[in-house]
Design a binder for these strands. Sequence first.
DNA 1: GCGTGTTACTAACACGCGTTAGTAGTATAG
DNA 2: CTATACTACTAACGCGTGTTAGTAACACGC
Lengths: 343, 343
Amino acid sequence: MAVKRVTSQDVADYAGVSRTTVSLVLNNVDNIKISPATRQRVLESADTLGYIPDAAAQTLAGRRSRIIGLILTRRPHHIASDVFLTQILNGLFEIVHENGMRLLVDIVEPQHQKEAYLQMARANRIDGILLSGPRADDEALNALEEDGFPAVLIGQLPGANFCSVDVDNRAAARMAVDHLLNLGHTRIACITNANLSYTAAADRLDGYRQALHSRGLAFDPDLVREGDFDVESGYIQMHDLLEKGAQFTAAFVASDALALGAKAALRERGWRIPEQIALVGFDDLPYAQYLDPPLTTVRISAVELARQASAMLFRVMDGDGPACRQITLDTQLIVRKSCGAER
Amino acid sequence: MAVKRVTSQDVADYAGVSRTTVSLVLNNVDNIKISPATRQRVLESADTLGYIPDAAAQTLAGRRSRIIGLILTRRPHHIASDVFLTQILNGLFEIVHENGMRLLVDIVEPQHQKEAYLQMARANRIDGILLSGPRADDEALNALEEDGFPAVLIGQLPGANFCSVDVDNRAAARMAVDHLLNLGHTRIACITNANLSYTAAADRLDGYRQALHSRGLAFDPDLVREGDFDVESGYIQMHDLLEKGAQFTAAFVASDALALGAKAALRERGWRIPEQIALVGFDDLPYAQYLDPPLTTVRISAVELARQASAMLFRVMDGDGPACRQITLDTQLIVRKSCGAER
DNA sequence: GCGTGTTACTAACACGCGTTAGTAGTATAG
DNA sequence: CTATACTACTAACGCGTGTTAGTAACACGC
């Protein structure tokens, strides 16, 4: 059943050297001289014996696990249709693999975050942490900071001086709503992408508000709904807007996923897009351009976001570079048919 | 900076007992008696000192990492819009957390699979492995089996006697195509969900073929295209079908994601769904019902698939239950408007 | 008073590796 | 010919935990 484990001692015996030498050779420790002949012999021995170092032992002795943790702060069912997440994973794997690392993914309910990832950090299970969807009401983050544990936020948390990679959600939302305003719309509904304790959601809503304000338009709470990550919530909230008789000629839905649901609700009631209702989304998910009509949206390169975040994390872990920085990636309004600007 | 680590020795000293006692108390080892007073004292000491066991040391000493690996056999960019994956993750987290485990996610390119997850297994980095998207040309699986390493496939691999959880892709595809045949269609295009070395893709295509055959219809290669996981490939392949002048009145696209892309290609050419072309997808992704028109599709509960797979893996790891079993989950044809059956 | 149990613990080993300090042996300099 | 330096290694410690074998103290029956 369980095959006898091959240890570095076995390799050493087989090659007729000490275990130390085996370790030095296999880890390519420079500044220490090993004769080419010995080196060769060790490598061959390791190969023929099929030696694979024990991860736990390496971690214990070397004080690093070569694993980084990606922590998602959501309710589990919220990720079930989260294409943004898959894009993040895509970008992450690239950089993580380049650095010979592995990825531990975990999700923590907004309630009991403390134990969850703080434990992983303090147990040395991971060398660094990427936190997606930081929330203002998160307490464990402070503990992480006090520990001086390498962490990078995907998203932002004003106040805390964490390393973070993000887009300017506020400005991006303003840009999207400005576009609708420029097209002559004055009554614009808004469905947020999530609960407002998520900073991204709050910022996007604020961008919406600012855009209205800059044109002297009043913020009307009756035109605003709070979404909840998934397609269904987009459908539900748009349905509710229509049900309550809200009057609007355009809608800004702060996530493409929800925009897809909202679109379905509109169509169900017979509204034509963009002729009767103009629609703008957020994220530019891979399927946005294939919707009917193609969705006007704010492009965020989630893949790039992930690349930058992980690259930054590795810099923090190596201890070089400025200890903490905030990176803000560009966004871009992608005009397609759903807003009515393009014919 | 790096806080001084609190070890179990510290707890022992603080409580005035031996390190062994601390270990026995904290791990709730029964069949060994510890006086309530001592137990209490140890627990309090651990609490006040903020003791958190070192994961690597526990793994090394206890010979298990409490981590299971989810391995995806794809090219990284293929997961960028993979909603099926997020559903799997959703289901997985439930069961994995219930069992006090963690999840290491990794993706391996179809080429060099051997090193990738075989290493993780042999390095004892993970206690068990879930393999999504097994391929017929995978060699490392045999090695895993020889090692007797706990593994469960999400999907199937005929020949190998691995534990697996899957749907009957062949029958499900037959059901979908049968539905189109029953509606009177005789020329039905097919776009597979992926390269045919993925068993799921091959099986679904075979189901399509069987359905045609059972009605005495010939299999026409000109009506078939190979997809590649993402929305875009659905668009491209449907575009190609139309470009080449293929004649058909219905299409079976073996993945909702690709169906979304295919739908866009059809609309671009002015084809109306379902009036001129009937469309059936596969997977029943969360957004399928919100498309325009709502997509007729084969429902697979990815969440349930993941639950069953992980539950089975834990059973294998515990060594109880029948060593190896194949579980086949039910599928269901969800009839919506895109096939033209519903008005 | 002796053997047998039971209770409540502990000493000591094992897990497999990284790494530092040190040591023979040989080459080079003065 | 001795002192210094360099090469090519190795012995031994430490990482922090789980676990087995053992021990002192005490109770009990006869």
